[in-house]
């Protein structure tokens, strides 16, 4: 099995994770979606030097991992391709922002380092939250929920198709790399001279397949309604969950939890 086929397997496993049962899986998709959005917004709103305020935000994803039974390991494993990209965002801060903001013993920590770590954590936390949403909610339910929230049909269909398109593309990529390696044995990766035609082929082939897949949806009556998804009513426990989440986020945002805890120990 080559790397691509593995990536494909993992993507397919997203569906399987979402098909499990747990208290988190049972929640209404809209409640989960809104809670995730709230979490990401609050996370991003922290000041770039407010590292101690940001760190406790990790509690929510950890709690969700625990309750949903999704392995933290699988999250990092699946995200290993995107994670470095997100983390790289803050990499240059230490060079631009050299003012010392913190002293740990004789070690001076510059503002750049703090803001770099803050940015990385923001990216990491947001990714984990999105992963948890996808791992506990089937894509079609999520789309049905979005429609319930009156998100325009076009956007919802676009989201649905993008998700499927990514699947088709990884599959095509797997097939093509395999075909390539069978004819270029012993070669590591794909030779740079073949990149152009390889990418072009990949796009064309996956576009063709995506087109056929979409036709297949249309032929079986898809008309941007989600009758085929069993959308449960929004119950009080869903509202409770959403309410608690938002309250908790605001609490973490405006009450300096880390300092209070730290204070309790130091005193």
């Amino acid at each position: 099995m080559n790397k691509m086929q593995k990536a494909l397997r993992e993507l397919a496993e997203m569906d399987e994770l979402a098909a499990r049962t747990s208290p988190v899986h049972a929640l209404h998709p809209a409640a989960k979606l809104l809670a995730t959005i709230a979490y990401i917004l609050v996370t991003l709103s922290f000041d770039k030097y407010d590292l101690s305020g940001l760190v406790p935000m990790v509690l929510w994803p950890i709690l969700l991992f625990q309750i949903s039974g999704i392995e933290v390991r699988s999250c990092f494993y699946k995200l290993r391709i995107v994670l470095p990209l997100v983390m790289a965002v803050g990499l240059f801060n230490p060079f631009f922002d050299r003012a010392v903001v913190l002293r740990v013993g004789s070690l001076a920590v510059s503002g750049g380092v703090v803001s770099m770590v803050t940015l990385m954590l923001k990216g990491l936390f947001s990714l984990m939250a999105s992963f948890l949403l996808m791992a506990t909610t089937p894509i079609d339910s999520l789309c049905a929920a979005l429609r319930k929230l009156r998100v325009p049909k076009m956007l919802v269909t676009l989201l649905l198709l993008t998700y499927r398109y990514v699947g088709v593309m990884t599959e095509e990529l797997a097939v093509m790399t395999e075909a390539y390696h069978l004819r270029a044995p012993g070669q590591k990766g794909i030779h740079i001279s073949a990149w152009g035609s390889f990418l072009g082929q990949l796009l064309l082939r996956s576009m063709d397949r995506a087109q056929e897949l979409y036709s297949s949806m249309l032929l079986r009556g898809y008309h941007q309604h989600f009758h085929y998804v069993d959308v449960k009513p929004f119950r009080s426990r869903d509202a409770l969950y959403l309410g608690c989440c938002v309250m908790a986020f605001l609490l973490l945002r405006y009450v300096p939890v880390a300092q209070l805890l730290g204070g309790a120990f130091v005193r």
Binding site: A19, E171, Y222, Y228
Partner: peptide
Amino acid sequence: DNQMFMPTVYEDMIFAPLN
């Protein structure tokens, strides 16, 4: 491969009738 787009066989089978 282009026909079956839902996660499971069952979900694919109910897609058209429910629509």
